[in-house]
Simulated assay, not measured.
Amino acid sequence: MTRVFRSRGFEIHPVIRAMDASVIKSLVLEGAGIAILSGAAYDAERDRSIKSLNVSHLFEPSDVSIVLDPFRFIRGYGYLFIELLAKEWTKARIDRIIRTHVDGVA
């Protein structure tokens, strides 16, 4: 991210770095500054107190990877989360692919 700003002539000095978006959003709400987060971390309904600006034109798209253990039960919200990220990855498709890899059945 710093590279993107430098390439446009801006020098930034991050003061706080946190891995959890909820912590970052809490700090913004407390007036600690601004934050740049993935759009997936912002929910317009839940985060009404935070102003959101789309800056996707400043950053290259990035990939998201989800790793599933085929021997663990996937809860409904797990399937829902995956489908929210990529509509084509439905529960039926995920289960079929897991069965194929575990059982060797197509």
Rank of each mutant, 00 (worst) to 15 (best):
V28W: 03
D20H: 07
I36R: 05
G33Q: 09
D47K: 00
S52Q: 12
R46M: 04
Y42I: 15
I24G: 00
K25C: 01
S22Q: 14
L27K: 10
D47N: 01
E30W: 04
S49C: 08
G39P: 00
D20G: 05
S38I: 00
R48A: 15
S52I: 10
A44S: 09
E30S: 15
I50R: 01
V28C: 03
S49D: 14
I24C: 06
D43Q: 13
A41L: 01
D20V: 09
L37C: 02
A32W: 09
G39F: 01
D43W: 04
I50N: 05
E45F: 07
A44V: 08
A32V: 05
I24A: 07
R46T: 11
L27I: 01
S22W: 06
L27V: 00
S26N: 10
D20P: 02
G31R: 02
G33P: 09
G39E: 12
E45C: 00
R48W: 06
E45Q: 14
A41K: 13
A40P: 07
S26W: 03
A35G: 00
L29F: 00
R48D: 10
A40N: 10
Y42V: 12
G39W: 04
E30D: 13
E30L: 15
K25R: 06
L27P: 01
A40V: 10
E45I: 12
A35R: 03
S26L: 05
G33L: 08
L29M: 12
E30F: 09
D47M: 01
G33M: 02
R46Q: 11
I50F: 02
I24K: 05
S52P: 03
K25I: 02
I24T: 09
S38G: 07
S38V: 03
D20F: 04
G33W: 06
S26E: 13
K51Y: 08
A44F: 07
K51C: 07
G31K: 05
R46V: 12
D43C: 12
K25Q: 09
A44R: 11
A44M: 03
A35Y: 04
S22K: 15
G33D: 08
L27S: 00
A21E: 14
G39K: 09
L27T: 02
R46G: 00
D43G: 08
I24V: 15
V23L: 11
V23G: 03
G33F: 05
Y42M: 14
V28P: 07
A40L: 13
L27C: 06
L29I: 02
D20Q: 09
D43S: 10
D20I: 10
G39R: 11
R48T: 08
S52Y: 09
S52R: 15
L37V: 14
K51A: 13
S26C: 05
S26V: 01
I36V: 14
L37T: 00
V28E: 03
S26M: 05
I36M: 07
K51E: 10
S52D: 05
S49L: 13
K51S: 11
L29T: 02
A21N: 14
G33A: 07
A41W: 06
G31V: 07
L37D: 01
E30N: 14
